[in-house]
Write a protein that binds this DNA or RNA. Sequence first.
DNA 1: AGCCGCTTGTGAACGCAGGAACAAAGTCGC
DNA 2: GCGACTTTGTTCCTGCGTTCACAAGCGGCT
Lengths: 217, 217
Amino acid sequence: MIQPRPRTIPEATVARLAVYLRVLTALADGGRSTVASGELAAAAGVNPAGLRKDLSHLGPCGVRGVGYEVATLHDRISRVLGVERSRACVLVGIGNLGTALSDYAGFGTRGFEFVGLFDAAPARVGRRIGGHTVRPMEELEEVVAATQACIGVITTPAEAAQAVCDRLAAAGVRSILNFAPVTLAAPPGVDVRKVDLSVELQVLAFMGQQRLVGEPA
Amino acid sequence: MIQPRPRTIPEATVARLAVYLRVLTALADGGRSTVASGELAAAAGVNPAGLRKDLSHLGPCGVRGVGYEVATLHDRISRVLGVERSRACVLVGIGNLGTALSDYAGFGTRGFEFVGLFDAAPARVGRRIGGHTVRPMEELEEVVAATQACIGVITTPAEAAQAVCDRLAAAGVRSILNFAPVTLAAPPGVDVRKVDLSVELQVLAFMGQQRLVGEPA
DNA sequence: AGCCGCTTGTGAACGCAGGAACAAAGTCGC
DNA sequence: GCGACTTTGTTCCTGCGTTCACAAGCGGCT
């Protein structure tokens, strides 16, 4: 029993697939039925050849001489990314950033559902945000077990992040998205993805100043 | 006149340098005076050899047999990244995410100063956040010119992002950090960096589900 | 029906980042 | 003073991601 489609899709490709999916949604709303790789690549900001190679991981899904059917391609990518299935997520740390994420409309339409918001500060417990009530940290394990949540999002201060990570992992969460500015250590089988807003700004600023010395024109 | 140090530092290295800088700050606060590459790499979550290669871009800055002097290395990285100089930033779109960013303490200590907060909604104009008052969009060009702001952060809804990007670029902003879920087109000389929270979650979820089929044990 | 133009899908080459291994160098102990 | 140990800085190499270029295939036109 061979596997005609290698199960390993590069991480960079997965990230771009999510972008293509969003562009396709916009095209479908605009009434377009087909789109060529060149146009789709331009809208996504990538190279046309790279886009075709990305899509080739899903098997043939275009028509030569015509392009890609918007609806079909949208469904195909949705299925591969698992957008159709609902994923239970918990969010710990309901500060400004946590509030922003829990309210963010882009998550709900992509299969992510926040089933629990947690904060250690008693003043924040009980607040209602986007249809959910902020719970105390004591209920974390209980909610994760009850909802089978598999994704945890950490938006706590840096000092609390590692402890929260440990509790999430112990409770059964398998994937963690960390916004706290620390590098987290997680047990094997749990993978952590980090988003560091400060680092993004720093890189941007460095590239800007480097461009100034490189092209003094 | 040769250049003993190649001016091109890889982008991936720059991102890690920012992480090292934060770890070094924590070590200095803890009273440590020297640190070896192994320990520093563990704290930053990278390979020791990779860390040494990153630091080699700054020229020799360690002592063989001992390690790196915390204070010296901190200063060296700070100077390369340009943390010492203050950078004026403007932020457009004061929703939940914009509010979170403008309040984020991690920026001020890294040389980034928000000199203007803007929003199109009259209801938000006039609010005071973190020592600044939200201004109407009409004042954008004026403030950018007066403050020589070189960095713009976009946290508007997707529909408004491209128009804001155009106005920022026209006003003289050279670097843009985009949180809106669209791919922006900017004129040459302006570079855009995108942070897509939805994509991050999507990649995390995909890797999680892929791991399940890969290791069914 | 046959030809032509357009677009996809794939194979090859290039460049880059990451990891491992090794030589240089400095310090500590004797 | 000298040897051995520790740690840095560098070099090589492997693998991955990206880009270019071309053959295969499909629709439309004559």
